[in-house]
Design a binder for these strands. Structure first.
Lengths: 149, 149
DNA sequence: TTTAACTTTGTAACGATTACAAATATAGAA
DNA sequence: TTCTATATTTGTAATCGTTACAAAGTTAAA
């Protein structure tokens, strides 16, 4: 659903100087589509980048979000989850296992109607559509607990 | 936009035994439409209910959300914000002053199309639509900072 | 009343995130 | 190259919203 873009080009497109740490974080977000938390990113990158600090992951994510290169999804109460795909799409979170899944316009009837630039007196900069429910796996499983809710 | 329902009836409709503290929290959520944080609720109720504990506010909000009597809006990264109106509507948050505003179906074209019960293999229990941008006041003000973002 | 169940309360803990200042790396000028 | 200013990264300590826990208080039914 995404062309796994070059992380360096992606960073530069948003005016971010590509350091090794930033490239690693951006690359992970572009290739992994699991909408990881900061901690999950740190854990994933740490082995291949042993000097990486968790603060750097937080700093980098903050910068990426500020510059619009990455989305900070507000779909999970517990932690921030990040998405490297900035094209318009919605998200689903499973209330049982916590998995977050992308939903693209062709999968959600009515999605393309929502990108209002103005609503009454309000100037709109960003639109977020979240669905919560049960994924296929958790519908078919009596007991399943990864990270509950 | 809401009939400020009786808090006791509202609690009972959702199977919650109405204690004085629960009534106070529910009443505040039904009448104040500012989508308060737990702390704001505590601060607002504390003067007229001096023995109230902040833990009780958290406990009560947790119960109300679990029972579906109240919505925990995920629209604000910093704190949870609560909404006593459980009818389908969207929310807007101003990126400058932080105000959260209700958007009812007649104000948002396409909103009523989104209440899918099923999306592919996913069973949907809840839908959330958030808009972020600048409210009328903050569009017309050079410098305005309540709680920044 | 007595008793069991429920509710509230205050304190202490938790955990995600941020502040801060020192250490390191980078890039351009000399 | 070497120097120097600037940007970046790092580790530790702090912050702050929220939750755990256990004691105290309340309620309602027997």
């Amino acid at each position: 659903m995404m062309y796994p873009a070059n992380p360096i080009e992606h960073l530069q497109r948003y005016g971010i100087k590509p350091s090794p740490q930033r490239i690693a974080v951006m690359d992970y977000l572009l290739s992994s589509r699991v909408h990881p938390t900061a901690d999950e990113i740190y854990t994933a990158l740490s082995p291949s980048m042993p000097t990486l600090s968790k603060t750097t992951v937080y700093n980098t994510l903050k910068l990426l979000v500020e510059q619009g290169a990455v989305l900070n999804l507000g779909i999970d109460d517990r932690n921030a989850r990040y998405d490297g795909d900035t094209t318009p799409h919605a998200h689903f979170r499973c209330l049982k296992c916590g998995t977050v899944i992308d939903l693209y316009p062709h999968q959600v009837e009515g999605l393309e109607l929502l990108n209002h630039k103005q609503l009454g007196n309000l100037r709109i900069a960003e639109t977020r559509l979240y669905y919560m429910g049960y994924c296929e796996h958790c519908q078919n499983t009596a007991n399943n607990t990864m990270h509950m809710d």
